[in-house]
Amino acid sequence: MSFSGARRTALGLLLAAVATFWQAQGLPRWGFDGPGTGIFPQVLSGIAIALSALVLLLERRGPQTLESDDNEAVSRYDLAEPAQRRVFHFYLLALVLLVVGTWWLGFIVTVAAVIITIMRFGEGVSWRATLITAFIVAAVGQFGFGWLLQVSLPEGPVDRALLGLMRAAGML
């Protein structure tokens, strides 16, 4: 059985469904007052296993274009030029930085790191334009969302230092 990307995706869904079914098995199907916690996930994951197995069987083997592929306006990695793929890899790296930065680095550093990765290294925008954009986006985020709209943002050493400075200057 050859495994195209489409089949690997269907297999991934099948494995997710099996894992869910396995987790749901430990839940009670029926309680003293009616249907239990497990009835819904058990039935659904059973159906998901059957459907994803069916998709896996029916999915094409080769890499040829299928009608359904073109229905969603998504750009395809396998058809992209090497330069475009390189940009894509930097976008993926930016997503990793987004997660890591949120955990440890705080909002300002994360935004700067993500923007530099995408604009400078991915898209080849000049350092000057990249840094100006990073500054504006970080400032709009920190002051517009964090301060004006009172939205909670990830905090890191730089964010805390900035807030400390603003408090010391009597701005907060």
């Binding site: 987004l98 949120t102 935004v111 923007i115 995408i118 991915g122 986006v137």
Partner: peptide, 12 residues
């Protein structure tokens, strides 16, 4: 590049 940066910031 600008659009993607802004979208990711709003996502975050």
């Amino acid at each position: 590049a600008w659009l993607a940066s802004v979208i990711l910031m709003v996502c975050l």
